[in-house]
Design a binder for these strands. Structure first.
Length: 450
RNA sequence: GGACGGGUGGGUGAGUGGCUAAAACCAGCAGACUGUAAAUCUGCCGCUCCUUGCGGGCUACGGAGGUUCGAAUCCUCCCCCGUCCA
C-alpha cells in the first residue's frame, strides 16, 4: 500500500468527484469512505457496469465514463465491468422499445468495440476490466435462489418502472398472459423541474406492458456483480438509481460494507429536448470526424452548453460557473465559450491538433463565409457532361433527384462559391480540374475530374 | 379459445367512394435573420421524366383478391396489434 499522500485532500476530491453528479447516496457515507481511503492509503474501488447492447458510443455514454475517469484521476481504482452476461437478459430500465435478446456473438462484438472506444477516456493502464459472465455464467440454481431470498418482492415492485406498469395494467391475468419483454419508455431529463412536454407525452402514451419474472432478476444478478467486485462506489446514469441501490443492499446482505452510489444526469441531445440517443438522431458519435463533431457541438443552444461543460469536460464546476458569469456579464461571448467547449471535446477524441484544425475550419467556413480548406474530396473519371442534380445524387449530397432539385430551387447549392440558379445546369466533366460543391449548410465536397 | 377495437406517408394522427400524393401536428431540409447558434419568419418535405409547368408518368394508406367509370374509403379471405372475457 502506498502512502496516504498519494491522494489529493478529501474536500478537493469531493468537489471534483461531485461535479455534475445528480446524486450521491448516502452522501455522508461516501465522504467517510474518501476520508478512510485518504487515511489508510487504500484507493476506493469505483465501478461502472455497462451492458454492451449497441456497438457505437456517443457523447451521452461518456458522461458516466468520464466520472469513472475522475475517480481514476484522483488515484482510485476504476473497474469497468462489461455486462456480457446481463446483456443477454436485458435491463428493464427505461427501454423505449422491445429489444430482442442479444446473441453471444453480438455481445462479444459490441464488447470489443466498446473497449476500444472506452479508452479514449479511461486510462487503459489503470483500468480493471471485468466481464460478469466470469461469475454469473457459473451461478447454479441454488445460488440464484439464495440471492433472490435476500430481497423482498414488495421492495422490488416499488421501482418506478415496475410500479407504473402494474398500475397502468390493471388485471394480473393479462400480465401473465403476455410473455413480452417490452418496457415503458420513461425518459428522464437532467432537471426534473424542466420536464418537457415531449417526455410527458411519451410516458402517458406508452401502453402498459407485462412484467416477466426475469426482469425482476436483472437487478439481483447485477447486484451479484457488485458483491464479487467488492466495490466501494458504483456509478451510473440517474435511470440506474434503483439498480444501484439494490446492489448496495445486496452487498450488505452478503456481509460487505455496502457501496455508495453516484448517479449522473442524462445528457440532453442536440435537439435541446430529448436525451441524446442514436434513434433520435440528436447525438454526436465519439468516432465522428473532428469537423463534424465540432459543427454539431456548435449547433447546441447557449443554455445547453453549460450542462455540456459540466458533463463532458474535466473543467471544475467552479471554472464553469465563472465562465457562465462572464458570459452573463458580457465579458465573454457565448460563441467563444462554445467554441472552447467544442475544441475541448474534439481534442478528447482526436487530439489537440485536430481540434485546433476543426476550430480553424469552423471559423473560416461559417464566420468568414469562406470555403473550407479541407472539404472531403471525391474523384471521378472524365466523361460526358452531367446534370448537376444527377451529380449531387451520385456524390451522396442528395438522396434522390427530386431532393437535389428541391435543394437547388431553394438556393442551397453552390458551385465554386456561386449559388446555382439553374436546375438544368450541366457540369462539364471532359477536362481535368477541381470544383467545390456545397449542398446545404454543412455539406461540402471537392470534386476532382481526372 | 370467445367478444369487441384497430393497422394511413420518418412519428403522432385526420380522412368512410371522385375535389386526396392524402388534413393537422412533430421531426427533417432549404432560405432569411444571426454568433453555422437558439428563438422567429418563409418555403419545401414519395419517386421519376422533360419543353421546369398551378406539366407528364409511376408508386403509396397491413397482404392478396373482388365490386365500381373511379377505392385509403365498399365486399371476401389472410396476416398482425390492442382491449376485455376465459
Amino acid at each position: 500500500m502506498n502512502a496516504p499522500s498519494r491522494f489529493p485532500p478529501v474536500d478537493e476530491q469531493l468537489a471534483y468527484l461531485a461535479k455534475g453528479a445528480a446524486e450521491i447516496l448516502p452522501q455522508a457515507e461516501f465522504e467517510a469512505k474518501l476520508e478512510h481511503s485518504a487515511k489508510t492509503g487504500r484507493p476506493l474501488r469505483a465501478y461502472l457496469g455497462v451492458d454492451p447492447t449497441a456497438p457505437d458510443l456517443h457523447l451521452g455514454h461518456t458522461v458516466v465514463l468520464r466520472k469513472l475517469k475522475h475517480f481514476q484521476d484522483m488515484g482510485h481504482t476504476a473497474v469497468f465491468l462489461i455486462g456480457d452476461f446481463s446483456a443477454m437478459i436485458g435491463d428493464p430500465t427505461g427501454q423505449s422499445e422491445t429489444r430482442p435478446p442479444l446473441s453471444r456473438a453480438e455481445v462479444d462484438a459490441n464488447a470489443r468495440t466498446y473497449l476500444e472506444q472506452v479508452f479514449k477516456i479511461l486510462d487503459r493502464q489503470k483500468t480493471e476490466i471485468r466481464y460478469n459472465s466470469e461469475w454469473l455464467a457459473k451461478l447454479g440454481a441454488e445460488e440464484i435462489v439464495r440471492l433472490c431470498s435476500h430481497y423482498p418482492l414488495a421492495r422490488m415492485l416499488e421501482r418506478e418502472d415496475f410500479r407504473s406498469r402494474l398500475e397502468a395494467g390493471g388485471s394480473w391475468k393479462r400480465q401473465q398472459s403476455s410473455l413480452q419483454l417490452s418496457c415503458v419508455d420513461s425518459p428522464r431529463l437532467p432537471q426534473p423541474d424542466s420536464t418537457l412536454p415531449s417526455a410527458r407525452k411519451l410516458r402517458a402514451v406508452a401502453t402498459p406492458q407485462s412484467i416477466a419474472i426475469h426482469e425482476l432478476l436483472y437487478p439481483l444478478l447485477t447486484a451479484y456483480d457488485a458483491v464479487m467486485l467488492k466495490s466501494d462506489v458504483e456509478l451510473g446514469a440517474t435511470e440506474q438509481k434503483f439498480n444501484l441501490l439494490v446492489h448496495r443492499d445486496i452487498q450488505r446482505e452478503y456481509g460487505l460494507p455496502g457501496q455508495a452510489i453516484l448517479t449522473m444526469p442524462i445528457l440532453v441531445g442536440l435537439d435541446d429536448q430529448r436525451k441524446m440517443s442514436k434513434s433520435y438522431g440528436n447525438y454526436v458519435g465519439i468516432t465522428e470526424p473532428p469537423t463534424e463533431m465540432f459543427g454539431k457541438l456548435m449547433s447546441i443552444s447557449d443554455e445547453l452548453m453549460w450542462s455540456y461543460w459540466e458533463l463532458l469536460t474535466d473543467v471544475a464546476s467552479d471554472g464553469v460557473r465563472r465562465m457562465r458569469q462572464q458570459v452573463a456579464a458580457g465579458g465573454l461571448h457565448p460563441m467563444d465559450a462554445k467554441m472552447g467547449l467544442a475544441t475541448k471535446i474534439v481534442a478528447d477524441f482526436h487530439g489537440e491538433p485536430a481540434a485546433r484544425e476543426a476550430s480553424e475550419q469552423f471559423r473560416r467556413v461559417f464566420r468568414e463565409r469562406r470555403e473550407p480548406d479541407q472539404a472531403p474530396e471525391r474523384r471521378v473519371a472524365r466523361g460526358e457532361p452531367r446534370r448537376l442534380v444527377a451529380l449531387l445524387v451520385d456524390l451522396g449530397l442528395a438522396g434522390s433527384r427530386s431532393e437535389a432539385e428541391r435543394l437547388v430551387k431553394q438556393g442551397g447549392v453552390e458551385l465554386d462559391g456561386a449559388r446555382v440558379e439553374d436546375i438544368r445546369l450541366e457540369i462539364d466533366l471532359s477536362r481535368a480540374g477541381t470544383r467545390l460543391l456545397r449542398a446545404g449548410k454543412k455539406k461540402f465536397l471537392r470534386l476532382t475530374v481526372e
